[in-house]
């Protein structure tokens, strides 16, 4: 009996690993193929697409084309500015609103919460026509400000929702002790509450980072100018122009993959903890 159970357990474990390995290979294979081929000569790309680059087939010609033709450093910088500034606003404004909703009783509190939560389910893209019209009217087309405003608005609903859940758990005694010590409401928020919800802030930041960094729709519509292209739009346009230059396309793809991959590997623990801690349930 016990050997039979042990055997079936072993069988199950092997089957489990087989399924997981299969999907891991499926998930990583395209990324792997792109990265290794970006380092090869054109001939080697076509002759042996699955071989690793070796002394003979190694070539950086694709990266040279990218460096010469595309302005990837500028695109990267634009993406960085847009992502970091939007995240800062989402976190600051989101936390402030979440604090107001979770800390004070006032008329219209739950209505305000509901109003701010609407945007969790309704995608902001539906309003694109009027957003573009508004950006044209205010002269913000082709500025990073337009993108920052849109992403801030897009990120706020979920941020307020998640952060207010967490702020409700902050001890009432602590805040009241602060009040007795004569701290203002602002000091209580910035000095007592914010440090305590830091893990939730990190979760919100990681959740918002990926969609902002990867978005193609709004850069394409609101900021397609050469000066304001984000990395996602920049690589899309570049690849479109160099379709037949496989070295350049593969190198451009690799350059777009790497920052996302590095960021992910740095923050993956935070992201996974955020998802599994039930912040989005």
């Amino acid at each position: 009996m016990s050997t039979a159970t042990a055997r079936s357990n072993l069988g199950n474990t092997i089957a489990a690993h087989a399924i997981l390995i299969t999907w891991t290979v499926i998930a990583l294979f395209p990324v792997f193929v792109i990265l290794i081929n970006s380092l090869k000569t054109r001939k080697a790309i076509f002759r042996e697409p699955l071989a690793l680059p070796n002394a003979e087939s190694f070539s950086l010609v694709g990266y040279q084309t990218v460096a010469k033709q595309g302005d990837f450093f500028l695109y990267f910088q634009n993406s960085m500015i847009v992502t970091v500034v939007s995240l800062t606003f989402i976190l600051l404004f989101g936390a402030m609103a979440a604090f107001a909703l979770s800390e004070y009783r006032f008329r219209g509190n739950s209505l305000m919460g509901l109003y701010l939560a609407l945007g969790i389910m309704i995608p902001i893209r539906i309003g694109t026509v009027a957003i573009l019209e508004m950006m044209v009217a205010t002269g913000l087309v082709n500025t990073l400000t337009a993108l920052i405003l849109v992403y801030t608005a897009q990120g706020l609903p979920l941020a307020v929702f998640i952060l207010s859940e967490f702020m409700r758990q902050v001890s009432e005694d602590l805040k009241n002790a602060g009040r007795i010590d004569g701290l203002s409401e602002y000091a209580i928020f910035f000095r007592l509450v914010l440090p305590l919800v830091r893990p939730a802030m990190a979760t919100v930041a990681v959740f918002n980072m990926i969609p902002i960094w990867n978005d193609l729709w709004f850069p394409l519509i609101l900021a397609p100018g050469e000066e304001t292209k984000t990395l996602t739009l920049g690589s899309q346009v570049f690849i479109g122009q160099f379709v037949t230059d496989w070295n350049a396309v593969l190198s451009a793809l690799s350059l777009a993959i790497l920052p996302a991959l590095v960021l992910y590997l740095i923050f993956s623990r935070q992201l996974i903890r955020g998802i599994t801690s039930g912040a989005v349930k």
């Binding site: 402030m96 604090f99 701010l116 609407l118 902001i124 801030t152 608005a153």
Partner: peptide, 18 residues
């Protein structure tokens, strides 16, 4: 003061255009 920034940006850039 706590509510204003979030509500303003959200209303102006998301709800109003919608």
């Amino acid at each position: 003061v706590f509510l204003a920034p979030a509500v303003l940006v959200y209303t102006a850039v998301m709800i109003f255009p919608l």
